[in-house]
Design a protein around this nucleic acid. Sequence first.
DNA 1: CGTACCATGTAAACAGTTACATGATTCA
DNA 2: TGAATCATGTAACTGTTTACATGGTACG
Lengths: 187, 187
Amino acid sequence: MKKDNHTKYAILGLLTTDCRSGYAIKQMCDRSLNHFWKISYGQIYPMLKQLVTDELATVRDTTQDDGPDKKEYFITAKGEAALQEWLQTPIDKIPAERNAVLLKLFFSRHQDADATIRQLEDYQQKLEERYSTYEVIEEMIASHMHNKQDAPYWLFTLDYGKRLTKAAIDWCTDTIDQINPGRDNDG
Amino acid sequence: MKKDNHTKYAILGLLTTDCRSGYAIKQMCDRSLNHFWKISYGQIYPMLKQLVTDELATVRDTTQDDGPDKKEYFITAKGEAALQEWLQTPIDKIPAERNAVLLKLFFSRHQDADATIRQLEDYQQKLEERYSTYEVIEEMIASHMHNKQDAPYWLFTLDYGKRLTKAAIDWCTDTIDQINPGRDNDG
DNA sequence: CGTACCATGTAAACAGTTACATGATTCA
DNA sequence: TGAATCATGTAACTGTTTACATGGTACG
């Protein structure tokens, strides 16, 4: 019985882009992977060591003229094979999103309709901010295009994020309406 | 700086339904809360003790004629107040869904289009099963209706699940099309 | 007598975040 | 000199899952 540990493969996969150091991987995560897979330094550095131990990557100390020393990691043939095997493996179960807003809504008979609506409006606003972020990232990927092979797949993941966020925004609108149908929009 | 610990309030909230024992709470979770907040026994029993310690609930040993002994928990006035305060608190950040399918898709230039499509088809099928599950739960809530005050809110959360699942299913269809536009549907 | 269900709990492992510590280089 | 950025790393903590352990009752 093997463990999945998707984060391991996330980091391994990022080594196939231009990211070679833990710092560069973290930056790429924050830019492009963040909306479906967050990774912290507390995972990255120990995992890079682990990848070397498992012979899925090699490491090289590098001195830079224009910056501090760093370690550069390179995926090995064994690493490429492991990545491809992981890619082909179907996921065992679809993830259950943990949503605190839904949890609160579930128990919202214990509070005023107004308070519930405030909660949903706050959620909707945050969703709209998220949607905007996705659009920015989308443009970044489309304009950068440094790696034309990766770009279409990266855009698919963005499209997913945008669609589901849009669906959530619409749900907010409709649910607010249902909780308080006679409510005006102005103060 | 207080901790959120939403699971604490999930359990506290469930005490306001007909659930009084750890076992009953677990059952209710699996039936109605599962699609946005899973809770395991490993959390429930220690947390129920904690609630009593925090004076948010009281406990009573009960012997049943038609079953084994059990402990019954009751929310206190302090518990009700804590629940309502938590309900009113806006969430600090919207949760980032961790999606292994998107993670694999992100790196899918490393495999054949066919393998990627298989992955997406598998995901789509699981999503459709999930959608069906939501419909079953929806009917259960609508037919049971033991608590008419809770029912509308519970149905809102189901509606959310259905809408987002539907959006994901549609995305699968469109993405599969884009990866391999000239592909036939028959073998 | 066995199976299913009701019922309570813990220990260990695992995943992930946060806070901290360190230090180099660049630029204003 | 100080701030921003580049760069690496760990320790402690929190949350959650899984596996295990126990035992009662009901029903066929």
